[in-house]
Nucleic acid binder design. Sequence first.
DNA 1: CTGTTAGCGCTTTCAC
DNA 2: GTGAAAGCGCTAACAG
Lengths: 361, 361
Amino acid sequence: MSIGAGEPHQNAQGDAQAGAPRRATISDVAREAGTGKTSISRYLNGELSVLSPDLRARIEAAIERLDYRPNQMARGLKRGRNRLLGLLLADLANPYSVEVLQGVESACHALGYMPLICHAANEVDMERRYLQLLTTYRVEGVIVNALGVRESMLKPVGSGGIPAVLVDRTVDGLDADVVGLDNAAAVRLGVEHLLERGYDDLVFVVQPFEHVSSRREREAAFRHATQAARQDGLRHATHVLDLREEDTVAPALEALDAHLAEAAKRGARCALFAANAPVALRLALHLKARFGAQWPQQVGLIAIDDPEWAELAGITTIRQPTREIGYRAVEFLHERIEGAAPAARAAAFPGELVVRASTLG
Amino acid sequence: MSIGAGEPHQNAQGDAQAGAPRRATISDVAREAGTGKTSISRYLNGELSVLSPDLRARIEAAIERLDYRPNQMARGLKRGRNRLLGLLLADLANPYSVEVLQGVESACHALGYMPLICHAANEVDMERRYLQLLTTYRVEGVIVNALGVRESMLKPVGSGGIPAVLVDRTVDGLDADVVGLDNAAAVRLGVEHLLERGYDDLVFVVQPFEHVSSRREREAAFRHATQAARQDGLRHATHVLDLREEDTVAPALEALDAHLAEAAKRGARCALFAANAPVALRLALHLKARFGAQWPQQVGLIAIDDPEWAELAGITTIRQPTREIGYRAVEFLHERIEGAAPAARAAAFPGELVVRASTLG
DNA sequence: CTGTTAGCGCTTTCAC
DNA sequence: GTGAAAGCGCTAACAG
């Protein structure tokens, strides 16, 4: 960074009176340095070799004196590229998103982008509005952790729409890069662990599928894995828990309780498989309320996602390499922005089993 | 929203071949509608009354046909205002930040701003870089949850720098609006609760003060509150826990253990007061490892901040009205951007005690 | 090596 | 009612 690298500056303008002294422009600097705008522009763009030491020194002094900062908007307008990337996140309250975000950020820094973070807060409507906004700000690409985006809002990979890469969730009918967890393998890992620990009645708990592909994939993988086990007397079921509708969760949890009670009567060992962290939190809260602090002795619990509180609560999880997912997403996007046009790719990262007290068996 | 309100559009351009069909500009629309750019601009800015119904219809059709989206950058360049607000967050992994963010977002929507979210990830250096970047993108104002910003980077309220409001933490020597928790009252609330529950040896645990004013304020309030209690035999102490340096935390926790052991020997009832959620998590983890699941019987724990896992872990907390804090910050900023120039204000919101099992006494 | 000139996409007087 | 023209701050030919 050549400019204003953190040192305090004097503001040459009349601070004393005006409310908004108007930032210096490139013309101001040119005048101050007694030269043309071109040279200033060259200086800004690092074409230092082309400038005489004297001119260069004058420019530096002028910039310093005026506390000049080039206007990125104007630059972007002219150049046609503004180094802005849109990051559209379904839910920042989900630690998963924050972690992916961190990966995205470090990749952005490495590649010279500025991430524009948009938080849909689980509202399809917000998501739509943000997508438009991003378009309007002419971001060079978007990373989308989709909620309900319809294919029509993003252009598929081939056509000239704004380059997009999907995180965790695909969008029906949209041909784009996707990066996320290897759901099938992760769920299999979890199921195998539960079987090893002697559970013989597995219940998968997931939020309403809607258009969220990962939920669907995980559930399918769960059914597949339990069936493939072909273990005598192994039972499995899927329960849906809609966390957005507080009044639907109570009945859903009751149904779950009924299942647990029935299993207990049969002498079966029951374990819950939470499709993600928010579900796991809700389940743990419920189990604790129902069975007390010793709930893991009554029922097992495993979850995909590894939020920081899982350790404290002693919940077995399958951790996703979240930063890497975010990082890779940016790399994919970068390639596309730079003009590469391969067919849509998918990067599926493996999950890692973290065994804790909730699945002691 | 008049334009492209989410419906699918045909892309009139030659999708078939070019990689980037170049978005339609205002001139394209003007040509397509057989009129001048001025009228298009008027239409975009809602000066509908000035347009003949016929022209208006043609414009609408042209926009639709070309899937036109006005370029915000260009608009901002011309107008001098781009409706961008910078939000600089010290640590998004801290649920506090995410909640403040949510408040900021809803206020931004209400007031027509677009928040540019920047995440310093606890790195002073990142923070500095982002602050420059924001300047460079000509945001109209910034909301800063400061880490180590020096006064020199933000201009005080009076002079014409970029309008700023501080969240949770003040900056030495900087005269700006601040919004956050009423630390003194919150800590007092917590101390009173602990005393009521019969604890008589209180230990405040906080991260290194550095330049974080809220840490300092909370600690001071703690000392003040315990001294004011003037209760016979009441003891208090402060421990510092540096979460960033993993190798310093073990010794710090050992010191804490020593304190607890000594207190136990005296027959004192000891309680820990965590200055914020990250500290509380670390403490809870440690206590659990040391005393087992029943740790609350050995030592009390209360924390400022109320992360979602506090309920699960049964930890007593003092909840901050985080959304409101974020919302108010934007309101303050908005007033300044609109030109109001009152003296620097401070909004201190009250905390709310949430009693759980960790302070049963 | 350095400066002049013509826009990027949009808004905004100022005429018609 | 409507449009032509002059920039906003910057970059990129193209000349000197």
